Computed example of a mutant assay.
Amino acid sequence: MLDINGGELLILVLVAILVVGPERMPEYARQLRNLVIKGRDLVQSGKATLKQEVGDEVDWSQLDPRQYDPRRIVRDALAEPSPPPRAAAPRPLPPPPGKAPFDSDAT
């Protein structure tokens, strides 16, 4: 998501301590904690509302956007067997020599 490793996080925390200062850091930490708790509660509330509105009959695997990955589509297409060849439609007979073909729709 944010793609931050441990070293980068440590540097960000040290910069935050230097910029904010050690005397205001506990208050900012409390505000961050409250923000995270509110975000978690909001997500849980959204999940509960969605489950209440939609119910359990939804097949969530049908709504998974990963199924539209082009690499997966090509891999699945290459893995499935080819359909059997269809019989060719019979060709119309050519008109007899010396006689022009007649088209009833053209007249």
Rank of each mutant, 00 (worst) to 15 (best):
M1C: 08
G6H: 09
G7P: 07
E8L: 06
L9A: 13
L10I: 12
V13F: 10
V13A: 15
L14G: 12
V15C: 11
V15I: 15
I17Q: 14
L18K: 04
P22F: 12
E23W: 12
E27A: 06
A29R: 14
R30I: 06
Q31F: 11
R33M: 06
N34I: 05
N34G: 12
I37M: 14
R40S: 05
D41L: 08
L42K: 13
K47D: 01
A48H: 00
A48E: 00
T49V: 02
K51L: 04
K51C: 03
Q52A: 12
E53N: 13
V54R: 15
E57M: 10
E57Q: 13
D59A: 07
S61W: 02
Q62V: 07
R66Y: 05
P70Y: 10
D76I: 03
A77P: 01
A77L: 08
A79H: 06
A79N: 14
E80M: 10
E80K: 11
P81N: 08
P85F: 05
R86Q: 03
R86H: 05
A87R: 08
A89Q: 13
A89Y: 06
P90E: 09
P90M: 04
P92I: 03
L93M: 08
P94H: 08
P97R: 10
P101N: 10
S104V: 09
S104G: 03
T107C: 08
